[in-house]
């Protein structure tokens, strides 16, 4: 459903993403892994259009994503939800308002309709009783679950996650991963930048290993973790896996 073709992105002299090609099919759960600074976030942000690409092209169901075709581009982007490492919830709004704002302002739903949808997804992430709280009164894990619900309210057909659990205390990681796992079980297409190797292995079906802006290895999760091919992937796994 997404085709990334020879995409490059530079920051000054840094080649953050360098000639990356990648195909993501419907229902895929792709784990983007790699050392710090390898370009995982940048690649994910390029796919959503948060970063303008310097070269190559991205296709959504065969149609090129072209920022100059504003109307179409906006519709294409609306099909992707994005979850940030630092949640980026709106601190001046309640949990419920966080979830309804864009539904009302972008999708043109009525307040009642939007709240109904929001309640549905808040229930899904187990936070319906927190709907009138403000984000600053929630734990990190709860914030991230709200952020996921907020993205889901826009009815995307794929979800992009940029290290959704990296800013969380260890005891809160699981509650967020569980929500993501449920999403995957229900058939959501997901691209997840993560350092959670357990999640990549058990929930993800494919792994894309990046280093220095390039895809070094791409394999099914099972293959990647049991039998990595490249030296760099072996080296990386020996550093992050404790066993």
């Amino acid at each position: 459903m997404i085709k990334v073709e020879h995409v490059s992105k530079n920051f000054g002299k840094t080649h953050a993403v360098n000639d990356v090609s990648l195909t993501i099919n419907k229902g895929d759960i792709i784990s983007l892994i790699g050392p710090s600074g390898s370009g995982k976030s940048t690649l994910l942000r390029c796919i959503h259009g948060l970063e303008k690409i310097d070269g190559g092209a991205i296709y959504l169901d065969g149609e090129k994503m072209d920022p100059s075709d504003k109307v179409k581009y906006r519709k294409q982007r609306a099909r992707m939800g994005f979850v940030f490492q630092h949640f980026n919830l709106f601190p001046n709004m309640t949990v419920l308002e966080n979830c309804t704002l864009a539904q009302i302002q972008v999708l043109g739903k009525s307040k009642e309709e939007a709240e109904q949808t929001a309640n549905e997804y808040l229930q899904k992430v187990g936070l319906q009783e927190k709907k009138d709280s403000y984000p600053n009164n929630l734990s990190g894990g709860q914030k991230q679950r709200v952020a996921i619900a907020r993205a889901l309210c826009m009815a995307p057909d794929m979800m992009l996650f940029d290290e959704p659990t990296s800013a969380l205390d260890p005891e809160m990681i699981k509650e967020v991963l569980d929500v993501m796992k449920d999403l995957g079980t229900q058939g959501m297409t997901m691209i997840v930048v993560t350092h959670e190797m357990g999640f990549a292995r058990k929930v993800g079906n494919r792994v894309v290993f990046l280093d220095q802006g390039e895809i070094v290895e791409e394999a099914t999760s099972e293959q990647f973790f049991s039998n990595p091919q490249s030296d760099r992937a072996k080296d990386f796994l020996s550093k992050v896996m404790y066993d």
Binding site: F82, A102, V106
Partner: peptide
């Protein structure tokens, strides 16, 4: 105001 607020709005289509 945190840049992340702009980005969150952008991803929501605002």
């Amino acid at each position: 105001v945190d840049k992340g607020q702009w980005e969150a709005c952008e991803t929501l289509g605002l």
